[in-house]
Design a protein around this nucleic acid. Sequence first.
DNA 1: GTGTGAATAATACATTTGTATTATAATTAA
DNA 2: TTAATTATAATACAAATGTATTATTCACAC
Lengths: 225, 225
Amino acid sequence: MNSIRIAIVDDKKLLREALISNISNYAEIEIILQAVDGMDFLDQIAALAEQERPQIVLMDIEMPIMDGIEAVTLAKEKYPGIQFLMLTVFDDDDKLFDAIKAGADGYLLKDEKISNIVKAIVEVVYEGGVPMSPRIARKALALLRNKADIIEQFKPDADNDHLLSNREMEILNRIVDGLNYQEIGERLFISPHTVRKHIANIYDKLHVSNKASAIKVATQKRWFN
Amino acid sequence: MNSIRIAIVDDKKLLREALISNISNYAEIEIILQAVDGMDFLDQIAALAEQERPQIVLMDIEMPIMDGIEAVTLAKEKYPGIQFLMLTVFDDDDKLFDAIKAGADGYLLKDEKISNIVKAIVEVVYEGGVPMSPRIARKALALLRNKADIIEQFKPDADNDHLLSNREMEILNRIVDGLNYQEIGERLFISPHTVRKHIANIYDKLHVSNKASAIKVATQKRWFN
DNA sequence: GTGTGAATAATACATTTGTATTATAATTAA
DNA sequence: TTAATTATAATACAAATGTATTATTCACAC
């Protein structure tokens, strides 16, 4: 099988070279790009044709100019095919969360054995896995577990079909935002009279008779925010 | 090193025995308990002394009487030291989420190779990892990613000291509930005039000038609901 | 092609709300 | 003790809101 094309993004020359010299022992992996920070990486990759791009990027998180999180966020949008393994010394909760949010495909600690990093690269490419250092995996799981209640709350409501028309929803949204008739009319380019009529209809449908109560219904049903 | 003591909980005899005969080839693992459903498992484990208990439980999810999710939920409370590997044919999103919430320490698909199941057991015990079948790991990550916004929203606010007095908070709460001056006064046994004065003060403090906007501030700061 | 629902618009009136101002008692902080 | 804050209360006026009613246009379904 073809060797896996990877990139390494890290500002510490020492670490970068240690990685490179170690990984170069593995025939199945080919390092085709090095960068010293996120911006450098984005610049370099923009210059490559699609088939020249790396399949996997080992991305440090803490870097000057543009850090790994931001780089992944931007890169994932432009090159969704590339997979990113975050490689960092820290196992900070927020960083982990941010990395996942940005679209990281794996998260390894730098003190991981090189053989494990290689294993992780192979796992991502050939098994579609999500390699994580054990400590990281625990944290990710804990994160999910801790937020379970919150997530649960936000499961779609099942009931509530679209009682309100699109226009009415639009107007209710402005009410929730604290706009008055006049302002809503201006925003939507309609007469304030029309707005009032819509709102009267909204009240009918929601069985309320003032803005505050309408907002309450909208909030409980989690229609906005 | 000592062998790892595990339990197997599955209602399908065939599958159970396949697992057992396969795992018994590995000297490092010792099967010390079998159960056919969650209830059976809880009964059996309750009869064991602490040092007799399994370190790892391979737990099926779909089972009659008491399913794996419920069993883990209950067992984790009573025996937090035991680790649970969910082992199921389905990779249903909700089930995965429920399992994590219940406290599962890993999640493998049943079509995983036996060697991988053994590897997973070893990983949990000796490396503190969270073994997951690649497909599952992807889903867990996606789940976390999808809910990122929601989780973020619930991070504590840091700012906001109690600008508002207790009384003012009380009254704002009624506003959020959609009550008018009259009604708020009745509920709090004060004159509607007083209510209006309080509300005017609230508006001053929150830098707003109507109920809807006040509600918006309260909602954003998550003071109620 | 007729009817239904949705969006638009206007008028009119009663009610509620927002704001200003003033005042008193109770509590709290300096 | 004094000053500041909070809670209480009332009056008055302007602005916004809630409600009723009527009417036109448009799109879509039957």
